[in-house]
């Protein structure tokens, strides 16, 4: 390890230590495994007790105000510019965005949440240099590294013919959250969340799925057997009556889902369904939650008659169905006669 690396390591160690110390003044009790950890940043990210405390704090009625200590802490922690500490802040993005959006109509003070969201947005704006993210849609008539073409196209053998497509438009710096930019700012924060999702604890993704259902504001149970539509049996109707309060709460959280927010939401959801190892137990829980979120969002897409969303979420649901019929082609066939 070079001296430079060592310095930066001890630097990030001490910054994480500082973060834990200041967190101790905000939370009732920082769990001992965190304060005593040799890898404080990882402990901050992964300790379940700590996460529960912070989440709980963020869901308090007065949590998003400008003078809220925890928001301040999240803001400062993100501003350390240490990637592993920023990850800790992003870990709580689902709750921050979720609680923030649900409080907009109630005109509560939300400057604390907004500061954190803006910090994340600003970070992404700088690291992308404000540029749009684009991709080129491949054209199979040109040879690629994975395929050859029989026909020869001498006149379009270079990449100038490629047509760039915007996946995420360019970013301008924002000093405050202007209401018409709110969805975009949250969308960009979710894009950043998605880009770090490999390192994200499962609980954070579960929080995300929970808010997807709330944002969708729609019960997706009819699509359990997608593409067949389930009959509504009396049982479900009764269940609704019992949990009347719960479903009412869900309805309250329904928000507009413009494409700039829905697109990163669907990418994250795609990961939760298709990009995880379904063998581990906590991932099974995540998978179930993500299925539930997809169903809700599908119902919502129909309510919004949003063709792109119907296509994208519809295919996720179909894939969920297909995944139960998977054949393992790496297994040796069992035969009665073994011929060498």
């Amino acid at each position: 390890m070079s001296t430079e690396q060592q310095v930066s390591w001890s630097d990030s160690f001490s910054q994480a230590q500082t973060a834990i110390q200041s967190l101790a003044t905000i939370l009732p009790a920082v769990p001992p495994p965190v304060s005593a950890s040799n890898t404080p940043a990882i402990a901050l990210l992964t300790d379940p007790d700590l996460a529960a405390q912070i989440s709980n704090h963020l869901r308090q009625p007065d949590s998003g105000a400008g003078d809220n200590q925890l928001c301040r802490w999240l803001y400062d922690t993100f501003h350390t510019s240490k990637s592993d500490l920023q990850l800790v802040v992003l870990r709580f993005l689902p709750i921050i965005a979720g609680v923030y959006l649900s409080r907009i109509p109630h005109r509560k003070p939300l400057a604390g949440f907004e500061a954190v969201l803006l910090a994340i947005y600003a970070h992404e704006t700088t690291s992308r240099n404000g540029q749009a993210t684009t991709i080129n849609i491949p054209d199979l008539s040109n040879p690629s590294i994975y395929h050859e073409t029989t026909k020869h196209h001498p006149y379009r053998n270079n990449s100038t013919e490629l047509n760039p497509v915007v996946v995420s438009p360019g970013l301008e710096p924002q000093g405050t959250i202007r209401s018409t930019k709110r969805a975009r700012i949250i969308g960009v924060a979710l894009e950043l969340y998605h880009s770090r999702i490999v390192d994200m604890p499962v609980k954070s993704k579960l929080d995300f799925c929970e808010f997807c259902v709330i944002w969708a504001g729609q019960n997706g149970d009819f699509y359990r057997d997608f593409p067949n539509i389930g009959e509504i049996d009396d049982e479900i109707e009764d269940g609704k009556g019992e949990n009347g309060e719960l479903s009412k709460e869900k309805m309250e959280g329904r928000v507009l889902l413009p494409w700039e927010m829905l697109q990163p939401i669907l990418r994250i959801l795609g990961h939760c369904l298709m990009g995880i190892n379904k063998k581990s137990k906590e991932n099974v829980e995540l998978y179930e939650a993500a299925c539930c979120a997809s169903r809700s969002l599908y119902a919502r897409a129909l309510h919004d008659i949003n063709p792109k969303a119907i296509l994208a979420i519809g295919s996720l649901l179909k894939l969920v169905k297909f995944s139960s019929l998977c054949v393992d082609h790496t297994e040796l066939p069992v035969t009665n006669v073994i011929n060498l």
């Binding site: 849609i137 494409w259 697109q263 792109k308 295919s315 894939l319 297909f322």
Partner: peptide, 14 residues
Amino acid sequence: IEHLTFALSLCSQT
């Protein structure tokens, strides 16, 4: 085709 549908609708390339 379902994966392709997902990918292309996400980039609005329907």
